[in-house]
């Protein structure tokens, strides 16, 4: 990999390809996210949006290409835990919370703290952390449900809990995969507001199919198709792009 790249980007993806049994899920994908930026990523089913997140978070190793975090960390050489530790948080497409644990314990697991075995054995919650978790509970509207096991939450509440866990992690970069799937219109609106709020201090990449949500975010949009970037620009600009229309209507 080329580590000599000079970049100020928080996430620098260049020429990344991934194949599954000969099928190219990512095809020389390039993407640059600047610090403090929020980017929306859209694209038809199977375009490679989730695979892109898998590659960035260490779940899938790229066959070729460069992935740099903050200009100096070569993510293709690190495993999931190391990447998370660098400050990249992820919300999954299908909400994945720890169902047997309470809402509170889910947040406690996520809270930014040393992750070593011996540190967690003796870990205690500081007053500041407690306040922070209370705040996150309030933001995600889960205060009343803190003692409820996460498995008993509704789909939308799980989405919010997962976003809350992301917040507790305090990552520099958030990768958010389809955050509003299964949410009501009101919840969708609140989520857009929440993400915009988060974006004040952190960089965010959001994958979403819901166009009204993407419009509400009001940020630059990247369209993926067959594993590479098809178009990039404002939502209005890409919606007017002929090839984008073709891809969306052609299937």
């Amino acid at each position: 990999m080329n580590a000599a790249v000079e970049t100020t980007a928080i996430l620098y993806v260049d020429g990344v390809s991934v194949s599954f049994d000969g099928f190219r899920a990512l095809n020389r994908l390039s993407l640059i996210i600047e610090p403090g930026e929020m980017r929306a990523i859209i694209g038809p089913n199977g375009a490679g949006k989730t695979t892109m997140m898998d590659v960035v978070t260490g779940k899938t190793k790229p066959d070729s290409g460069t992935i740099l975090f903050a200009g100096r960390h070569d993510l293709s050489r690190l495993d999931e835990a190391a990447i998370a530790d660098l400050g990249i948080g992820r919300k999954f497409q299908r909400p994945t919370v720890f169902e047997m644990h309470t809402v509170w314990d889910n947040l406690l697991l996520a809270v930014k703290q040393p992750r070593g075995v011996f540190r967690t054995l003796v870990a205690r919650l500081s007053g500041a952390e407690r306040d922070r978790l209370e705040e996150i509970l309030a933001i995600t509207r889960l205060t009343e449900l803190r003692e409820r096991s996460a498995g008993a939450l509704s789909h939308g509440q799980k989405q919010w809990l997962e976003i809350g866990m992301l917040l507790a992690q305090e990552p520099a970069l958030l990768l958010v995969d389809e955050p509003v799937a299964g949410m009501t219109d009101a919840e969708t609106e609140q989520t857009a507001e929440l993400l915009r709020d988060i974006n004040r201090t952190r960089s965010v990449v959001v994958v979403e199919h819901d166009m009204s949500f993407v419009r509400a975010l009001g940020v630059r949009v990247t369209v993926l198709h067959e594993g590479s970037v098809l178009a990039e620009g404002s939502l209005d600009a890409v919606s007017a792009n002929e090839r984008v229309v073709e891809v969306y209507l052609g299937r």
Binding site: K59, D79, E80, A84, G89, T96, F98, L109, A110, R115
Partner: peptide, 16 residues
């Protein structure tokens, strides 16, 4: 318990 119920999710939170 998190590892027991959702091992890979735990990794993405930074746990080895």
């Amino acid at each position: 318990v998190a590892v027991r119920d959702a091992e890979s999710r735990t990794r993405f939170l930074g746990y080895r």
